[in-house]
């Protein structure tokens, strides 16, 4: 009964990838420079403004922070908020390996 009903609507549990692999929407890829990123440079958990602001929760609080590119939509909020400008938005096309 319950499952039948839930399948008649768009119904989902919170968890990674419930809206599909949204990383494919990305045009610009955020890339963290560990030489400038505060936690990476200091080797201690600190700053994490990127983690705090990421609307999709795809940035970890690690050393250095890691971005889950399967789901990062490339909105660029992390790059905008990073106090040391450690995150660059790089054209996604530049990561495509050309077939030779």
């Amino acid at each position: 009964m319950k499952d039948d009903y839930c399948r008649k609507t768009s119904h989902s549990k919170s968890g990674p990838g419930d809206a599909g692999k949204t990383g494919s929407w990305r045009i610009l890829r955020p890339v963290i420079d560990p030489a400038v990123c505060i936690p990476a440079k200091r080797g201690t958990p600190s700053c994490y403004m990127c983690w705090l602001y990421c609307p999709d929760g795809v940035i970890s609080r690690g050393i250095p922070p890691e971005i889950d590119y399967e789901y990062c939509k490339g909105c660029g909020i992390c790059a905008e908020e990073c106090p040391t400008k450690a995150i660059r938005m790089v054209e996604e096309s530049s990561f495509i390996k050309e077939d030779t």
């Binding site: 319950k2 039948d4 839930c6 768009s10 119904h11 989902s12 990838g17």
Partner: peptide, 30 residues
């Protein structure tokens, strides 16, 4: 049959893509 339950959080009437998707349990969702 189903209603909001704080013990079992869920997203209701979420955005759908143009195609079907696989949900977090690996089941095809409409």
């Amino acid at each position: 049959a189903y209603c909001l339950d704080p013990d079992e959080p869920a997203n209701l009437n979420t955005v759908t893509l143009s195609d079907v998707r696989t949900d977090i349990n690996g089941v095809k969702a409409h």
